[in-house]
């Protein structure tokens, strides 16, 4: 590992100033950053430890929104009683991610910024070519072992899948990222993540000198009746082959779909909101056939590579199963 300077910040403004120097990274839980530093993907000259910052780990649940501080640990948010009762999709997306140890370490802000699990991206010694690490160098995944790569949102430069779970739930429910920097600003989680296009090295909207300080989720009726279904190669401690964050609200007849929220994980280069499926379902009766017919729209425009075509078959099924679970059909 390259040698680095380590500084610890006691307040946000100092941390932002300290982060302005070249080759500097914030260190929070460290579960992504330290891992990537060991493998040589990340080679910072300086770490600004923000894990001791005060006042960034609050979890607030009020009638119209839920606010989660960026330093809150995944495990604490997952176990929060009001999150579990008012927004089960957030708790489920968190406790089905990583392991108990990692969830005790990883912060919510860092979780949003976790890097792809693309094996080519994470192995610079064996695969020098990677447009995400080294723009213009090529992509070993396009013609490599790409079973776990994206079928939605990819480009000829990169098909690395966004690996997270929480952001999928956040995108489904129109959450906002709170950012502090030279100016304070807010951006929709859906807009925070970028498609790779021809610059897969630029993954999100965050600039140097900026820090995520929290996320906020508007409370809607579908949030209380929500679910995160994660299908994977083993039962636990694994990334999604395909996952769905869903929420459902019925009309007063208890059968007609009034509001529905759907986002996919494990299949896209960013958390993937399935708006076409949502639009197809609003106003329709809640039956398995209606769900399965609409769910097919989720993979419109999907592009399979040699090994990942199964995701195009799997993703609509995961959506249907997740909706049937919240709607009481299974």
């Amino acid at each position: 590992m390259r040698a680095f300077d380590y500084v610890r910040s006691s307040d946000i403004n100092t941390a932002l100033q300290q982060s302005g120097l070249p080759e500097t990274r914030f260190l929070a839980g460290g579960t992504t950053l330290l891992d990537l530093m060991k493998s040589g993907v990340e080679r910072p000259a300086r770490l600004v430890d923000i894990s001791h910052l005060q006042g960034l780990n609050d979890i607030t649940v009020v009638s119209d929104h839920i606010h989660i501080g960026a330093s809150a640990k995944m495990s604490h948010v997952a176990a929060h009683a009001q999150i579990q009762s008012q927004a089960p999709v957030l708790s489920e997306a968190l406790w089905r991610a990583a392991s108990a140890q990692i969830r005790n370490m990883a912060s919510i802000g860092g979780n949003l910024l976790q890097r792809t699990r693309c094996t080519y991206f994470r192995d610079p010694a064996a695969y020098p070519e990677c447009n995400k690490r080294n723009p213009g160098s090529g992509c070993a995944a396009l013609n490599g072992i790409n079973r776990n790569h994206a079928v939605l949102g990819g480009s000829d430069a990169c098909i690395a899948v966004y690996p997270g779970d929480l952001a999928v739930a956040l995108v489904a429910f129109d959450a906002t990222v709170f950012i502090r920097g030279a100016t304070d600003r807010q951006v929709a989680v859906d807009d925070f993540y970028r498609l790779p296009s021809n610059r897969p090295d630029i993954e999100n909207d965050l600039s140097v000198g900026e820090m995520i300080v929290g996320v906020e989720v508007p409370v809607v009726p579908a949030l209380k009746n929500s679910h995160y279904l994660k299908v994977r190669d083993r039962a636990s401690y694994e990334f999604a082959a395909a996952s769905a964050a869903v929420g459902l609200e019925f009309e007063d007849d208890g059968h007609t779909i009034k509001d529905v929220r759907i986002a996919l994980g494990g299949v896209g280069t960013k958390p993937w909101r399935a708006r076409q499926v949502e639009h197809a379902l609003i106003g329709k009766p809640f039956t398995e056939k209606v769900l399965r017919d609409a769910a097919r729209y989720a993979v419109d425009g999907a592009q399979a590579r040699e090994h990942n075509g199964f995701k195009i078959v799997l993703a609509p099924r995961v959506i249907a199963r997740a909706l049937m679970t919240v709607g009481g059909l299974v």
């Binding site: 260190l27 460290g30 330290l34 891992d35 770490l47 140890q101 990692i102 370490m105």
Partner: peptide
Amino acid sequence: CDQGQCGACTVHVDGERVLSCLTLAAQ
């Protein structure tokens, strides 16, 4: 594994289980 995948390095910090291989001593 020394890369956060196996759990052999699990210790408690302030009573919570964490992976010591993905924690800097300074933290």
